[in-house]
């Protein structure tokens, strides 16, 4: 087991050697998806923007929230949520869709998870354009705390990376998992405060339960600083602990399955 664990960590360490492959393929994925379209990756930006605008126009007045509060909140929330969703769904296909390549090259398996993470980071960067526009339209302001969104994002990415590795492995073996994730995601979107705020919850117990929704604090780690606030210390610590525990779990799973994954494809 210890040897497998070492081999699993060596796989991840060796994927650094394939950084240029990760980089090229990440860009290539993005270019292919929007190949020869005029807007290119900004199609994604346009669709996120349309969604944010619609939510703000319909739900904003319904909730009776002032636009300078609600619009940046929804915009930041949707941008981070978009990253979480696409990381989870794409990771399920990380190994499955690359079966030809995996069966013919000895590149470390983590390379394929890193490629998904890199592609989604690029798309996330595109989507970020929406936020200053949302600030400007709603007349809201942010401040230097927004810089905290960078470490916040890195902590979120550290979490999404282990989730991605776990999903990639389990999806290769259990082909029902990608479908399960696809159907769970919209449910999670309503369970996570993106369109609504936690303080709107009528029952105290609801807020308590919400603390156990990892996507809630993942979003808040980036959303709160973007809007000029500072996420509470317990959110940082909680996220770091979950990242640590998650990585241990992911590494153990990877160690146990790494050699078998190619046989499952």
């Amino acid at each position: 087991m210890l040897e497998n664990l070492k081999a699993a960590m060596a796989d991840i360490a060796r994927s650094r050697h394939y950084a240029s492959l990760i980089h090229i393929l990440g860009w290539q994925d993005m270019r292919h998806r929007y190949r020869r379209s005029f807007l290119g990756p900004f199609w994604l930006v346009a669709s996120t923007a349309a969604l944010v605008a619609t939510i703000c126009l319909i739900l904003g007045p319904m909730f009776g929230l002032p636009p300078e509060q609600y619009v940046p909140y929804v915009a930041a929330g949707m941008i981070v949520w978009g990253l979480i969703v696409s990381m989870c769904t794409d990771s399920c296909q990380a190994f499955i869709s690359q079966s030809t390549m995996i069966r013919q090259t000895a590149a470390p398996l983590f390379t394929y998870v890193a490629r998904v993470a890199w592609r989604n980071t690029l798309l996330f960067a595109h989507n970020l354009v929406i936020f200053p526009v949302a600030l400007w339209i709603s007349g809201a302001h942010s401040n230097m705390n927004a810089l905290l969104a960078v470490p916040g994002f890195l902590l979120v990415l550290a979490n999404l990376a282990w989730i991605g590795l776990v999903l990639a492995i389990l999806s290769a073996r259990y082909r029902d998992l990608p479908k399960t994730i696809d159907s769970v995601i919209p449910v999670l979107m309503f369970m996570t405060p993106i369109m609504w705020k936690p303080e709107m919850m009528p029952l105290r117990i609801g807020v308590k339960i919400l603390q156990f929704n990892p996507f809630y604090w993942m979003i808040d780690l980036v959303r709160v600083p973007m809007m000029g606030g500072i996420p509470p210390g317990k959110v940082w610590v909680g996220a770091a602990v979950v990242a640590l525990v998650g990585w241990v779990v992911a590494l153990i799973l990877f160690a146990r399955t790494r050699e078998r994954i190619v046989y499952w494809l």
Binding site: S20, L21, L25
Partner: peptide, 14 residues
């Protein structure tokens, strides 16, 4: 671009 891609697959440095 494919030269770099192919080389990256082979693990050759940029």
């Amino acid at each position: 671009e494919n030269i770099f891609l192919r080389a990256a697959i082979l693990g050759l440095g940029r």
